[in-house]
Design a binder for these strands. Structure first.
Length: 208
DNA sequence: TCATTAACACGGG
DNA sequence: CCCGTGTTAATGA
């Protein structure tokens, strides 16, 4: 575990902190498509992403979903940090997008390290900032952009996160995550295909 | 105008 | 056959 930590967090954390993480945290492998966290749940440890990707979703009163943002390696869930420390319920749902490797840190250590390590404090604040920026971008998309632009951004994000230009989703699944209907997604995808932006296949599509 | 809903046909697995 | 896909018609915001 020390090696992975060194590789992904070595440039952020001082040596003593890395070693302490290695001592107290546990490594966790999670298969793609697993629900890590659901709305209303309490959280007892905080994850650092080593490998893979996680999508963060919000749900409305009808149970419809909306994708908020993706987490990638080197990221952590800012929501989890507040929930852990304040002992609040989770406001979001987290589902693994890929097979994912996590380092789980016990809650007590989070507060202890905030006083002990400057790099930890910095990491926590940076994470808040990054998530907030990500969230603002999502709000801009929903409020000011049309569905065709939202769809394109979604597809590009997905390609960036998975590291593959082939997206293995049905139109219906995409529609759920963007909170719209399949008819719209089908129509827009067809238009994008005509414009040579992508190729459509059954159960998958490829960005060009 | 554009999204949603329902309905239908097509075709691949 | 079942499911994903492409399209259309009706309705509403």
């Amino acid at each position: 575990m020390l090696q992975e930590l060194q590789l992904h967090y070595g440039h952020l954390f001082e040596k003593e902190l890395i070693e302490e993480v290695d001592r107290v945290a546990t490594l966790k492998h999670v298969a793609a498509g697993s629900k890590l966290m659901d709305i209303g749940q309490y959280i007892k440890s905080m994850p650092l992403l080593i490998e893979g990707a996680i999508k963060i979703l919000r749900e409305d009163e009808d149970g419809d979903e909306l994708l908020l943002y993706f987490l990638e390696k080197g990221d952590t869930c800012a929501m989890t940090m507040t929930c852990c420390v304040g002992n609040h319920k989770s406001e979001i749902r987290a589902v693994t997008e890929l097979d994912t490797v996590l380092v789980m840190i016990p809650v007590e250590k989070m507060e202890e390290w905030t006083g002990k390590y400057k790099s930890w404090r910095q990491f926590v604040f940076d994470s808040y900032h990054n998530r907030l920026m990500e969230l603002l971008e999502t709000i801009d998309n929903i409020a000011f952009k049309k569905m065709d632009e939202r769809l394109l951004k979604y597809l590009k994000d997905k390609v960036a996160v998975t590291g593959s230009s082939v997206i293995k989703s049905t139109h219906q699944e995409i529609a759920y995550e963007l909170h719209t209907s399949r008819v719209v997604i089908s129509r827009l995808l067809k238009k994008l295909e005509k414009n040579k932006v992508l190729m459509l296949h059954r159960n998958s599509l490829e960005l060009l």
